[in-house]
Design a protein around this nucleic acid. Structure first.
Length: 577
RNA sequence: GGUCCCGUGGUGCAGUUUGGAGUGCACGCCGGCCUGUCAAGCCGGAGGUCGCGGGUUCAAAUCCCGUCGGGACCGCCA
């Protein structure tokens, strides 16, 4: 039907008679016998000069055949890639009419997302969605090529699997042939890729759909795509290298830029400096250690095991209500309180608590934070994890740049702790999954009589972070039965429970499991940041709203009683608490 | 489970603080004029359950309560 795409015509095409197909983006009529039609396809716009356009309307689907010619002097449009030329002597064939679109497709205004999603098929025609989905396709393609080139084998793992109650909530699917039994949709291909290692695949990857029934966010959907990979006979170093190569390929494909070496930071350093295990390193405003400054304080609120602060440049201008608001937020995030101090011209501190501090403490505070006139100091005192957490959130609140600023700051966070805390029975709670290999230097601590020692055990687990978003994580896995048994016993999982939950994996490991390690990262998140979007819905063709609904298809929906009957299901009344 | 923000012709907003007739702006839509525009221009027109329900009041888009929908975040996401 067509010889060319709209957005590709240039001066070098002048004289050719071409056919283009697309949608009527705009119509400019100048009387009965002259009108300009901007025709749009996924490549862009071309102006077509037609003899009368009264029967053409917005978004009509047309085929236009005409001669590419130079625009008359003085009528070129520098804002258009095709602005030097136009189609003349046009023959217009209407392929389909269209109702006026439910919203305007030019991007002069931000249209309500519900309206866009309810008519996503129209929304997809916008430059923004066309660009984002094509960025996504480029990323997928370059990741595939990079993994292929590194000797990884693409293997598809099942979508209908057994439910394992660990981790995120499963989506479940009732079984028709086994009424009362359910499949689960995979949260990740984790166990299958480890089985692939036992199966001698050596290097596996998959662009895998993963599903988790947890609350949605700007960076979280029920279903999302991961580059999932696992390799045998490799160390952590090699995994970081494989993934770095793949990510670099995607970045190169989209931006044309070379990524270079991805910096590393230990989990401990990330928490202490940024109050997060996924630090946004596009900006400073790091957490400042103040515990020694107030080691001997008489101020009760500062008699805590950890005191840290933030220096907000220019923050002395914050109004009292803004400071009260920050204090409220800090409390909601789990702080006992938030101490603020405005640094005045004379070096004095303007703060409700200044009178409780000694001259030495104030002097130490100013020196340690480097505070100068006009700054604001925000200080939290509490247990160390809480202090870091709250200040980390405040730091983001006050300093985080827009998504399109600050470049792409990738970061490997390494040496995660094996356990994040102890439960009420002093059993450690795993920070990752229970198959994560402890750091070789820390294995001896697993035999310690003091449960507190468990929290010091580092694991061979690592995260890839981009601009403060966790892109993904991975680990070296436990491949030996004796270490795995020790781990289960530490976690308070009995042999019977372990067998019931992970029996097929443990069985497999008895038949010759190679040392292996892997990684998985979220493609939606990577694409969103590469596309300059704050929200992964903008890079997903048909996403769901925060409540998990699809305004286009109206999923989730009720099903026919006959379907329930066939599945052996009966519904309970909806609970309204 | 929680905190906060938003909801006004098809779209995007203003109006809400301080109650007074569905008032205004821009875009779009429909009709007319217009032979070089390109966010075309000019003239005319249509289009509204101010999310929904209740309350206060002589009077509610506006104040109060509830509810629904959307968004951001905390919890959650091994």
């Amino acid at each position: 039907m067509r010889t060319d795409h709209c957005g590709t015509l240039r001066a070098s095409d002048i004289g050719r008679r071409v056919s283009v197909c697309g949608w009527v983006a705009r119509r400019r009529e100048h009387g009965e016998h002259l009108a300009f039609i901007d025709l749009r396809d996924h490549t862009g716009l071309i102006q077509c000069v037609v003899d009368g356009a009264h029967d053409l309307r917005s978004e009509y689907v047309v085929r236009i055949t005409g001669e590419v010619r130079s625009r008359p002097e003085g009528t070129r449009n520098d804002n258009l890639a095709t602005g030097e030329v136009e189609l003349g002597e046009c023959e217009v064939e209407i392929l389909n009419s269209a109702e006026p679109p439910p919203f305007q497709l030019d991007e002069r205004v931000e249209v309500d997302e519900m309206v866009r999603l309810a008519h996503r098929y129209v929304d997809l025609r916008t430059d923004r969605m066309q660009r984002n989905l094509r960025v996504r396709a480029k990323v997928n393609g370059s990741l595939r090529r990079a993994m292929d080139d590194q000797g990884f084998v693409e293997i598809e793992t099942p979508m209908l699997i057994a439910s394992t109650p660990e981790g995120a909530r499963d989506f479940v699917v009732p079984s028709r042939l086994s009424p009362g039994s359910f499949y689960a949709l995979p949260q990740s291909p984790q166990l299958f890729k480890q089985l692939c290692m036992v199966g001698g695949i050596d290097r596996y990857y998959q662009i895998a759909r993963c599903l988790r029934d947890e609350d949605l966010r700007a960076d979280r959907q029920f279903e999302f795509m991961q580059l999932d990979a696992e390799a045998s006979f490799v160390s952590q170093e090699e995994v970081l290298s494989f993934i770095s190569v793949a990510v670099a390929a995607a970045v190169r494909e989209v931006t044309g830029e070379e990524l270079g070496d991805v910096p590393r930071m230990t989990w401990h350093e990330a928490r202490e400096r940024f109050g997060s295990d996924k630090p946004d390193t596009r900006f400073g405003m790091e957490l400042i250690e103040l515990t020694p400054v107030f080691a001997a304080t008489e101020f009760n609120a500062f008699k805590a095991s950890c005191i840290k602060g933030l220096r907000v440049e220019g923050g002395a201008e914050f109004t009292r209500s803004r400071l009260d608001d920050l204090t409220d937020r800090a409390k909601r995030w789990g702080a006992k309180g938030l101490v603020w101090m405005r640094v005045r011209a004379d070096g004095e501190l303007d703060s409700p608590v200044a009178k409780f501090l000694s001259a030495d403490e104030i002097a130490g505070l100013v020196v340690t934070t480097g505070a100068v006139e006009g700054d604001l100091l925000l200080i939290v005192a509490d247990e160390r994890p809480a202090v870091c957490h709250v200040l980390g959130l405040l730091r983001l609140e006050l300093g985080r740049p827009p998504v399109t600023e600050g470049g792409l700051q990738f970061l490997w966070v390494v040496d995660f702790p094996l356990f994040e805390a102890l439960d009420d029975d002093n059993n450690p709670i795993p920070a990752h999954h229970p198959f994560t290999m402890p750091h070789a230097d820390d294995v001896h601590l697993l035999d310690s009589a003091d449960p507190q020692d468990f929290l010091k055990v580092r694991s061979q687990a690592y995260d890839l972070v981009l601009n403060g978003w966790e892109l993904g994580s991975g680990s070296v896995r436990i491949h030996r039965g004796d270490i795995q048994k020790r781990m289960f016993s530490l976690l308070g999982i009995t042999d019977d429970e372990a067998q019931e939950k992970f029996g097929f994996l443990l069985d497999a490991f008895r038949f010759g499991a190679p040392p292996h390690a892997g990684f998985a990262f979220g493609i939606d998140r990577l694409v969103a940041l590469l596309a300059g979007e704050e929200n992964i819905r903008e890079v997903i063709a048909f996403p769901k709203t925060q409540s998990g609904h699809d305004p286009l298809t109206h999923a989730p929906s009720t099903i026919d009683p006959a379907q329930l009957e066939e599945l052996g299901l009966r519904l309970l009344p909806v609970r309204k608490d």
